[in-house]
Design a protein around this nucleic acid. Structure first.
Lengths: 218, 218
DNA sequence: ATAGTCTATATTGTCGACAAAAGTAAATGT
DNA sequence: ACATTTACTTTTGTCGACAATATAGACTAT
């Protein structure tokens, strides 16, 4: 998949902090003290500042001038807003993928779907989650639109992952989602851009509604 | 409209640099030397670095480790990619606006349209451009989706403006675009979310095709 | 007792200097 | 003459210190 190679110290610090935030080790709403983090990571405040700046542009932290940065706090409304952004973007990605994906990329996607199916049968939850991520990622890359790819991979996906972890969403809905995946791939293989977009949007919409339901019931 | 108040020196430097880049005073592809800029603006390199970092997250400059930052170079392909992102996003904005815009906001939008119409009659090109920006901005705000608003206003709009200035696109297409605007507002006033989205997407698609044509013909 | 002010403290913003990496040009060897 | 190495210069990355702003607590006045 994607290789993010950290060459500078600020890179590593940024990646480490992002992991800590997304995984929940640094709890939402908590303050990111520059001095504190610089001693913890044993680096200068400058690299911490740079890392925090980048976290801000990923929408993982919010910063106020002369006050400081806090990890974004989670709300159902925020998650809904995020999915309202993700839905049309991935819809367009599927539309473009139907036109621009190479035949062998589509074949690989089918292979992935089959391995996904077998992991459903054996109830391997972890791989189901990873398989879902991989599925969306491949279609996104298949769109060949760099703006779209960068926007979703570098920003939105991480924020959504954070929400999922925080809200304890261990995404079930696998069996029905699998059928939706299948239909999307079929539309792409048929080079039906219009249908691919509609199906992808529906797929993400359903996921959103499912998340809303599970969240509201608890 | 939107007020971006710069409290810190880095804020001001960032805004100044962004203006210079979008307006073309700093030409695309040119290098942003930290030392050079720090002497030019009479500030320390730290604030220049922060400003450049923010420009990078706006997608206005590209940075490579240990090498430096360059203003993004323009290409027709890049502009197309950008419109392929913008189209579904603003489509969703129109869809949401049809549900969430307040009645008086819709009334204001109609007032704006009428003033737009009169400026078309008198051929005031500058106000036509500004009017178009204002139109899209109001619908975006009407969506009430903070993620969507921030994404378009803080990032995408600036990049598109840079492309327009650079490629010398003094957006004509006003009269037909006006009718499209009218139809979109009508759909929103009717609270027809589905139609509002379709019309907005078409509107942006047409704009893109128009830009492609004018660019290819020259 | 409460509101407001003032002082002390902690945190962020800015700066200049040093370290490390990349780029450049001269020098050497074949 | 060309390629490679080596010294040198330039630019970015990192650091610690100082300045400016915000927060917290003590103090005063009504």
């Amino acid at each position: 998949m994607l290789v993010e190679q950290a060459v500078t110290i600020a890179d590593k610090t940024f990646l480490q902090l992002r992991t800590d935030i997304v995984s929940g080790d640094i709890v939402p709403g908590s303050k990111l003290s520059e001095t504190e983090l610089s001693t913890k990571f044993a680096v200068s405040r400058a690299v911490i500042r740079e890392a925090i700046n980048r976290l801000e542009s990923c929408r993982l932290v919010e910063r106020k001038s002369n006050i400081g940065a806090r990890v974004v706090s989670l709300s159902l409304e925020g998650l809904i807003e995020l999915f309202q952004v993700r839905e049309p973007l991935e819809g367009m990605a599927a539309r473009l993928a139907a036109t621009h994906m190479l035949d062998n990329e589509i074949a690989d996607l089918n292979t992935l779907l089959h391995s996904h199916l077998s992991s459903i049968r054996t109830n391997e939850n972890y791989f189901q989650q990873a398989g879902d991520v991989d599925f969306h990622y491949r279609i996104l890359v298949g769109s060949k639109n760099q703006q779209l790819i960068s926007l979703l991979v570098n920003d939105i996906y991480h924020v959504i992952r954070m929400y999922r972890v925080q809200l304890g969403m261990t995404g079930p809905r696998v069996t029905t989602a699998f059928e939706e995946h299948q239909q999307i791939v079929k539309a792409i293989a048929n080079r039906d851009a219009e249908l691919a977009e509609i199906l992808m949007r529906r797929h993400i919409l359903y996921t959103r509604l499912h998340l809303e339901n599970t969240f509201n019931q608890t």
